[in-house]
Design a protein around this nucleic acid. Structure first.
Length: 594
RNA sequence: GCGCCCGUAGCUCAGUGGAUAGAGUACCUGACUUCGGAUCAGGUGGUCGGGAGUUCGAAUCUCUCCGGGCGCGCCA
């Protein structure tokens, strides 16, 4: 990559200067960092090495240090055209145009692989993301995690990692949440059979309300109201699932005990809820390698075995009838219950077993993406796997901040239908589409709370950054198409006069294209897909400027020399490849026409 | 109360300790009806929440105050 090559050159120069006696330096490590200056006047790349060596060399004038380093800079690298000392002592570098021109050859050769590397080949990563409870719809916050996780997967794969995407289904039989879910379904089922439902108030000071039956009773006889479960799931989607359950199971379950009814419906209802989640995620372009059932950890004894291991390693104790994990020994702020006094294992017990399972399957690195509201949970899970003897640093937990939606300048509130959650598919995807939703999610860093203005993302779609980027791609494709129609073949980059690409707009595009592999690597390293959406906007902008200033094909008013057309077609093709790969990494379509 | 995160242009957000803090959008002005105008050029707009410190240099690191979000279950 460019900065690595440049850094190597500068390091060489520093050492040469030292060996020649120009720089009084010990054997201290020479750390060279390169940056791209904001200001174009300051070159394509710049290094602050002279400023940082002030102390070590004892030379107070950084410009003097810079000058001495410059003297020893290898001249034959081919990468840089010139270098100069500027400002308080920066070394500014200007890339050699012919080196830039040759990027087009490389881009064409690598084609689908341009931007990718084998830097992290051999590393296996398990990415777990979304993992929403199977008791409700996929929310907008889940959507942000989904976009982040999916693109992170693409990025890591592009660095050579073997990536596995996984969704953890919290379907344990001993989960109180699942019990509530099943009970709620059972009550709604009865409501479909003609029973009123007694809804407890949300806030204790209010009165209970009786909801009428969802359908008249078959025999017309009025039924007594059934109490809605305490902390049950209030969303209307539960009524829909219950109606489907009624269709599947028939009316015969009316006279069972409430608990039995709940048990009978539980699995089928969960499955329906899960299908709802899966189709929402598929509409968002997310496909998992594995949907992992928490329940399987109980069925094949892994929870038991993990508990036994923790006991054997001496990190548990019994208190008040429960089994506790000594998580404070591993940095947690309090010890945690693994097995309740009613003998049911807790969520964390299963989760530790799950992460043990992830490691046992041979993954080097585990990445979990959670909502920020789970941050209190991080240290206890890490403590759990540390207690099992794993290095907790092999597990990385990314916490995404909240997302809110704005419509007409007002925050979008979750509808009653979805139990007051803002739903990904209906509140967002159906309105602005998959591509725009992904782009907006990926526009800001996951570390910061984000707001998506739906009016902006949809109604003014022409001004939308995502369309701006896609339009640039479609334009490039159009030029290539027109060339073909005119009988002009797109010759390979190595066979054209690349030196003709000397217009500033052309060189700007080339520099941006050359940056792409590094940009991908940084986005992967920092878990920062938003770097790529920014890059995409930059590149699209440069391409439009190029388009405005540099005609590729001869037209009625302007004729372009054949050789220049060839060279520009090569540039167009290289840009097309880069933009297409970029959008591919983001999971956003790259249309050839719009 | 304790812990974590966040305060950057009217709005939404970038900004790896570096040079004059940027982009999109909004608003104003102009170009061009083309290899698709879903375009381009220019302009208005900032005490980087306040204060102190660290150093050659701070939006970035430290401390403190103010403001906002989230978490502190034998729930998940």
């Amino acid at each position: 990559m460019i900065t690595e090559q440049l850094a190597a050159l500068v390091r060489k120069a520093v050492l040469a200067a030292r060996d020649a006696g120009d720089l009084p330096l010990d054997d201290t490590e020479v750390q060279v960092s390169l940056e791209t200056p904001r200001n174009k006047q300051h070159g394509d790349y710049s290094s602050n090495i002279a400023l940082t060596l002030k102390k070590a060399t004892g030379i107070p004038d950084s410009r003097e240090i810079a000058t001495r380093i410059l003297k020893h800079l290898p001249a034959d690298s081919g990468l840089i055209e010139r270098a100069e000392v500027a400002g308080p002592g920066f070394l500014n570098f200007y890339l050699n145009p012919s080196w830039l021109h040759d990027m087009l050859v490389r881009i064409e050769q690598e084609d689908q692989r341009y931007g990718a590397s084998n830097e992290r080949a051999g590393e296996t990563v398990l990415l777990e993301f979304v993992s929403a409870n199977p008791t409700g719809p996929i929310s907008v916050v889940n959507g942000r995690a989904a976009a982040l996780g999916d693109v992170l997967g693409n990025l890591l794969a592009a660095q050579g990692c073997t990536v596995r995407r996984e969704f953890y289904i919290n379907d344990a039989l001993n989960s109180t949440q699942i019990d509530k879910f099943a009970e709620t379904i059972a009550v709604r089922y009865m409501q479909h059979l003609g029973y009123p439902v007694l809804m407890p108030p949300r806030d204790p000071s209010a009165e209970s309300v009786v909801e009428p039956p969802l359908a008249p009773p078959e025999d017309g006889r009025e039924r007594p109201p059934i109490p809605f479960p305490e902390n049950g799931y209030r969303g209307d989607y539960m009524k829909e699932i219950a109606r489907e359950i009624l269709e599947e199971f028939g009316r015969a379950y009316e006279h069972l005990e409430q608990a039995e009814r709940a048990r009978a419906f539980r699995d089928a209802a969960l499955q329906r809820c899960l299908n709802m989640q899966r189709s929402a995620l598929e509409a968002f372009g997310i496909v998992y390698d594995c949907w992992f059932h928490e329940s399987s950890l109980y069925e094949n004894g892994e929870v038991e075995r993990t508990l036994a291991t923790l006991k054997a390693r001496g990190f548990t104790y019994e208190k008040e009838g429960a089994l506790w994990l000594c998580s404070t020994q591993f940095g947690d702020d309090k010890d945690r219950v693994l097995v309740r006094s009613n003998e049911k294992a807790t969520y964390i017990a299963a989760d530790i077993a799950y992460h043990d399972n992830k490691f046992r399957r041979g993954h080097d690195r585990l990445i979990n993406i959670w909502g920020a509201d789970h941050h209190g949970y991080v240290s206890r899970l890490k403590a759990g796997i540390a207690a099992l003897g794993y290095d907790p640093n092999r597990l990385e937990i990314i916490l995404t901040q909240m997302v809110s939606l704005l419509r007409d300048g007002e925050p979008v509130m979750g509808g009653k239908r979805h139990g007051n959650v803002i739903e990904l598919k209906e509140d967002m995807l159906d309105e602005i589409g998959k591509d725009a939703a992904r782009f907006y999610f990926l526009l800001s860093s996951y570390e910061n709370p984000a707001t998506v203005d739906l009016e902006l993302a949809k109604k003014q779609s022409n001004e939308n950054p995502v369309y701006y980027v896609q339009y640039a791609h479609a334009r490039l494709c159009n030029i290539l198409r027109r060339a073909e129609e005119a009988g002009i073949s797109v010759r390979p980059a190595h066979a054209v006069h690349r030196a003709l690409l000397a217009h500033p707009a052309e060189l700007d595009v080339l520099r941006k294209l050359a940056d792409f592999p590094e940009e991908v690597a940084l986005a992967a390293r920092d878990y920062a897909p938003h770097r790529l959406t920014r890059y995409a906007m930059d590149l699209a902008g440069l391409l439009n400027i190029f388009y405005e200033n540099c005609r590729v094909l001869s037209g009625q008013e302007e004729t372009v020399p054949a050789e220049l057309t060839e060279a520009r077609l090569a540039l167009v093709n290289g840009a097309r490849i880069t933009l297409r790969n970029l959008l591919g990494l983001l999971g956003i379509s790259a249309p050839e026409r719009m």
